[in-house]
């Protein structure tokens, strides 16, 4: 059960056939929070945007694709860093932003590549490095489950599911009483991947723009609703949660998204002009080699 700040008055439910069924096959429905009436079903798996998202995050290859893209992202970050290191020597005789229009095309490409690359270099580094963190999100969450969640659930994790579950409201109230000033972001029901058969896990979030991105897990007994354990997320999960908005640019309204799109186009220009310079160097080397043979 989760809440989306962009959809006030709506509760989203991710439903599986059984508590232990594959969560990736869950169906998601929107429920009116006041009338408890089902509004509609969200098909988050099909459509153009989910396809593009899966292409972007995993190349449609699942975990292997995510790891591959993570490694490629690390190469991207290294390429940007090396480009910044090369900027200084190549600009010793030029002013900032100078483009030598009177020189051959390859020099103009170099100047434009240097200009755009250095101006948006910092943004590219941020988006590239946060992309690497996001690529390893599944592994990070798995590690957290093994490292922290298992410890929070403790010895009671092996208990069977109780006959009667505590109400969700009672559980959420208990979590909210512990984490004052926070509200539930999502509740993992007993038997789901973020809880055990005998526990609810309530993931609380803050109210400020930044803390609304961060989560604090509160584990509650499924039979009584009382709080069993709660602790702050470790640094690696916090880094992952903060990296998501910094990678996707979905936190500052539509103008920020437009700026993000323009910066992405400029990044494509930097990559494209880099290819032009690289191919120009290859062609020149080949020409020199062929000339030497004659």
């Amino acid at each position: 059960m989760f809440w989306d700040d962009d959809q006030p008055g709506v509760v989203l439910l991710s439903i599986g056939a059984t508590p232990t069924s594959d969560y990736t096959k869950n169906r998601t429905v929107r429920v009116d929070a006041h009338r408890a009436a089902i509004l509609d079903e969200i098909n988050a798996q099909s459509g153009v945007l989910p396809f593009i998202l899966r292409l972007h995050t995993e190349l449609l290859l699942g975990l292997k694709g995510k790891i591959f893209l993570g490694v490629m992202g690390a190469c991207f970050v290294l390429a940007i860093a090396s480009g910044i290191a090369l900027y200084g020597p190549s600009m010793r005789r030029l002013k900032f932003g100078e483009v030598r229009h009177h020189r051959v095309a390859i020099v103009r490409w170099l100047d434009l590549h240097n200009l755009v690359g250095i101006v948006i270099g910092c943004w590219m580094l941020v988006v590239g490095s946060t992309g690497v963190l996001n690529a390893f999100a599944d592994l990070t969450i798995k590690y957290w489950q093994y490292d922290q969640l298992a410890d929070m659930l403790g010895k009671e994790a092996g208990r069977p599911r109780p006959e009667t579950l505590s109400s969700v409201q009672q559980t959420a109230d208990a979590a909210q009483a512990l984490a004052t000033g926070m509200k539930p972001s999502f509740i993992a029901f007993p038997g789901s991947i973020f809880s055990s058969a005998s526990h609810y896990a309530v993931f609380m979030k803050g109210a400020s723009p930044l803390t609304s991105r961060l989560l604090k897990p509160v584990v509650c007994d499924a039979a009584t609703g009382r709080v069993v354990d709660s602790r702050a997320m470790p640094w690696y999960v916090t880094a992952l949660l903060v990296s998501q908005p910094l990678h996707f640019g979905d936190y500052g309204g539509l103008p920020l998204k437009i700026i993000w799109a323009l910066l992405t186009l400029l990044t494509i220009f930097v990559l494209g002009s880099g290819l032009v310079l690289w191919s120009g160097r290859i062609l020149r080397a080949r020409r020199l080699r062929d000339g030497g043979r004659r």
Partner: peptide
Amino acid sequence: WALLAVPVAVCAYGLWPNSARRP
């Protein structure tokens, strides 16, 4: 938005035909 628009504006100026600094 204003701060992040600065690099975009500088790039747009630089990429605009014949607008970038000449030596």
